[in-house]
Amino acid sequence: MRDLLELSVSAAASGCIYALVALAYLLMIRPTGVINFAVGEWAMVGAFGGFLLLSKYEWPYALGMAAVLGFMLLVGWITERIAVRPLVERGAPLLAAILALLGMLVVFREGISLGFGPDPHQVPEPVSFEYLKLFVIGATLVVFAAVWLFFERTLWGKAFEAVALNRRAAALMGIDLRRVTVASFAGGAAAAGLAGLLVAPNTSAHYLMGVPLAIQGFTALVIGGVGRVEGALLGGLLVAFAEQLTVRYAPLPSGYAQGVPLLLLMLFLLVRPTGLLRARA
């Protein structure tokens, strides 16, 4: 029983990290249809931002966190301007933007690797380690509540939803598609950066941390469903619980257990490609 309780908190905290990465995907996919696999590298950039401001320059945590999130908004905006918008304006297919963003993944990773070297770097925790998981869970719930309110209660949120439902109709109604697109990338980068900042005290900041987070976040997104914000949270939690309960309790060699979330991903793609939560009509 002690193990199960410990594991529940641990899986919930890991699930929140996956959920934030899934949210980053979702914020971009809904209005633009673009799957941006560089979200993992954005999380890495957020983690290194934490290292720089919180470890190296020893800023107060709240200030450092705000600065990292502000910087990530900028990173998302710039990424959209240089890797997506030029392609959209030339009428390139969606796949071109996805491939360009894969290129950006390499640019981010190698940029960090050149700038900070290959060694992992320590990022301080906002609270003492025994409460870190609760902090991660709390911060994630606040973000999800804020994003949910944004979509449900604000005009801007409705504009996002309108673009997600029908881009052409939304444009005809006077919604600025460019603005929505750039805001979706900026928001996605901030969500991913927050995931990196929150996971880094545990894993440290290192240049290869992005791709595994991108895979786990994508799995969470597919399981939870692309259509609704709550789906990202549900998917993240399900992936983490499946992962950790399998390792702990399934009669499988430890090395095999890591394949379980990927099996879940394949299962959902085959049986329920819309995920657990479908978009509202």
């Binding site: 641990s10 905290a13 595994p212 950790q244 430890s254």
Partner: peptide
């Protein structure tokens, strides 16, 4: 007990519980 912590893991608690 023989355990594996995969690259990119966010915790090693389940393995250490075993």
């Amino acid at each position: 007990a023989e355990e594996v912590v995969p690259r990119g893991a966010t915790t090693a608690e389940p393995q250490m519980q075993k």
